[in-house]
Design a binder for these strands. Structure first.
Lengths: 219, 219
DNA sequence: TACTTCTTGTGAACCATTTCACATGGCTTC
DNA sequence: GAAGCCATGTGAAATGGTTCACAAGAAGTA
């Protein structure tokens, strides 16, 4: 009834929940479930069944009345919606603490995010090997990003240099950036920027404890 | 007009924005700003001035009409609201890729989150030193957490074992958990649980690119 | 085929959050 | 001390997101 072609503004929360559904569907698949109801899916995510159905309904009708959703089929649908049914060539910039942890982060690879390039400005790191990838000199950023056909960048550099690197990365034609530096970056309107701020969630916990905020959802 | 004592349900987004304001105020302080208006604050966070004022108004009136907010004073107010004006004794469980990156993550320490204990189950890691902290055997989890007076736990272990550890941690009396494992954990209702899912933001970027979703806010 | 059971898909109702708009009050200048 | 300016704090309006409730479709049973 509401085909994917119909442009409707989808909320950020809906997309985030699709990620959750995807993860749970992968699990259900491993547990050899054939089908799953919105009720069961909701239970696992601590959401309401109506929420699950509404989220999915923005993109089409994937279920069977009386039966539920076919696990494998729904998983594939969500992969398509999220755009993770393909390979994304990703460059990771900054091979420090966070950066080197991310190189080996399995969830990225599982979902089609292939880190194929590493960059740093530290001479001691340049040339070194992380999980089979040689760290490149950030001096060659623009050229190498274009040659390697990179479309996404993960930024794990100090806040002080993040903006300069973003400017270069944008010049190189990258249009999606995941930023781990605790700073507000400026990008042109056509570039997608997301910030990952790990302190934020600890701060939320702190607030919740101090205020006896009854925990409800976990994002 | 609306003192902090009045219990009102504060939205998750408001708390997250307070974190953003806090970070920006720290920066403004370094740049020697005396005062800041909601307009300026909003500009830096890509929000509206009304949003900033409304967020703050839930907790009191901290500004001066015609002038704006005193940077240092507002920063302190937010510290108090978020509960980061004190020290939190934190244990980090799982000294793998992510775990060891987090030990050195400066933002945590800056905001009063003191990682004072490390745990792992890997004999090769137990006894080793990370940033001055000796890794403990997870076998002694409950006892050591209580002795060290830990109130928060950061969980950076594989998904397969996360639930068992959470159960132990809860038994030890911990009531705040930040989970990096890609799994839905069960905790009693009085325990605060937050999940950090780094793949989620990449998935959002992927979705945005595939759907030409015009970027608006970055969380 | 008729009946029961189950669960989807979705307008409509409800609730939460954001934005608007303006009265209020502090500060500065004359 | 009056006037002008500026930016807060906040009800009210507008927007956006979630939940309700039910019609309708599929599968199984007799």
């Amino acid at each position: 009834m509401s085909p994917a072609s119909v442009k409707k503004r989808i909320s950020e929360s809906t997309i985030h929940r699709l990620s959750l559904y995807y993860r749970t569907l992968s699990l259900l698949e491993k547990e050899n479930y054939e089908t799953v109801s919105s009720k069961e899916l909701a239970k696992r995510e601590k959401l309401t069944p109506a929420q699950v159905r509404k989220d999915l309904s923005f993109f089409g009708s994937f279920g069977t009345r009386g039966l539920g959703y076919n696990v494998n089929e729904l998983k594939k649908k969500i992969e398509t919606i999220l755009g993770i049914n393909r390979e994304w060539r990703v460059a990771l910039i900054g091979v420090g603490n966070i950066g080197s942890a991310l190189v080996s982060y399995k969830e990225f690879a599982k979902q089609g995010f292939d880190i194929v390039k590493l960059f740093d400005n530290d001479q001691r790191k340049i040339g070194s090997n992380h999980k089979g990838i040689i760290v490149s000199d950030i001096k060659n950023l623009e050229k190498e990003i274009q040659e390697a056909n990179i479309s996404m960048v993960i930024l794990a550099v100090p806040a002080t240099v993040a903006q300069y690197i973003v400017d270069d990365v944008v010049k190189a034609g990258v249009t999606a950036i995941l930023n781990f530096a605790p700073i507000n970056l400026r990008v042109p309107p056509y570039v997608h920027l997301r910030n990952e701020n790990m302190a934020m969630e600890l701060e939320y916990l702190s607030f919740a404890m101090v205020n006896n905020h009854s925990p409800k959802k976990t994002k």
